[in-house]
Simulated assay, not measured.
Amino acid sequence: MSSRNNPNRIKIHRSYTVIEISETLGVHPKTVRNWIHAGLSVIDETRPLLIQGADLKRHLKQKRKTYMQQCEPNELYCFKCKQPKAPDIKSLQFVAMPAGMAHMKGRCDECRGKANKYVSWRDVNQIWTELGGKLPIAEKHLILRGQKPLNYPLAKVFDDEKK
C-alpha cells in the first residue's frame, strides 16, 4: 500500500463511505476512521458515515502540508535527521532533469545521511557559491543525462549510467 494518499483520486462532488475511501486511496478502513477522529468532517453521524469529497480532498492536502519542509536554497532535506541541513560539499551532485530542473543530492554534513532536493538549473551556480564552492563547478559534481542544457558552463556531456 502507498504511504502517500493522492488527493487527485477524490472527486469533490461525490460523497464517499469509509470503505469507498479506503479502496480508492489504498488504505485500511481504520485509517479513514482515525482521520475522522482527527478532524475529518462527516455529513452526519448516522451509519454508514458519509464524507463529502471536497472535505476529504482538503483534509488530505492539509495533512500533506504539515509534513512538508521548506529548505533554504543552500540546504538539502536529510532523510535521517528529517529536517533541512547543510550538505557536505564533497558529496554534492547536480543531476540534470527535464524542463530545466536539477536534482541536487548529497550527504548531510552532520549525520552523513542521504539528502536531496529539486532546484532550477539556473540556480545551480548561485547555490554552489553559497555553499563555498569555487566556479566553475567541478565536473564530478555535474551529471548530465542525454543532452546539455543551453546555459551549461562546460562543453562536455556526461552520462553516469553504466552500460
Score class of each variant (00 low, 15 high):
Thr24Gln: 14
His13Val: 06
Ile43Ala: 14
Pro48Met: 10
Thr31Ile: 11
Tyr16Arg: 02
Thr24Pro: 07
Ile36Ser: 05
Asn8Gly: 14
Arg14Lys: 09
His37Tyr: 10
Trp35Ser: 00
Ile43Phe: 01
Lys11Val: 14
Pro29Gly: 09
Ser41His: 12
Thr46Pro: 09
Arg14Asn: 05
Arg47His: 06
Gly26Ile: 09
Thr46Arg: 00
Ser15Trp: 06
Thr17Phe: 09
Ile19Arg: 15
His37Gly: 00
His13Arg: 13
Leu25Cys: 01
Ile10Lys: 07
Asn34Phe: 10
Leu40His: 06
Thr46Glu: 03
Leu25Gln: 09
Ala38Asn: 10
Trp35Gly: 03
Trp35Met: 09
Tyr16Gly: 08
Ile43Val: 15
Thr17Asp: 08
Val18Asn: 03
Asn8Gln: 14
Gly39Trp: 05
Asn8Pro: 14
His37Asn: 02
Ile36Leu: 01
Lys30Trp: 10
Ile19Cys: 01
Ser15Thr: 15
Gly39Thr: 11
Glu45Val: 05
Thr31Val: 13
Asn34Tyr: 14
Asp44Pro: 03
Ser41Tyr: 07
Ile43Asp: 12
Ser22Trp: 09
Ser22Glu: 01
Pro48Arg: 06
Val32Cys: 00
Asp44Trp: 13
Asn8Thr: 13
Pro29Glu: 12
Ile12Met: 13
Arg9Asn: 06
Lys11Arg: 08
Val18Gly: 09
Ser22Asp: 00
Asn8Arg: 07
Val32Met: 10
Val32Asn: 09
Thr46Cys: 05
Pro48Phe: 10
Thr17Leu: 04
Ile43Ser: 14
Gly26Asn: 12
Lys30Ala: 15
Gly39Tyr: 03
His13Ser: 15
Ile36Arg: 09
Val18Glu: 08
Ile43Arg: 10
Leu40Pro: 01
Ser22Thr: 12
Tyr16Ala: 04
Thr17Lys: 14
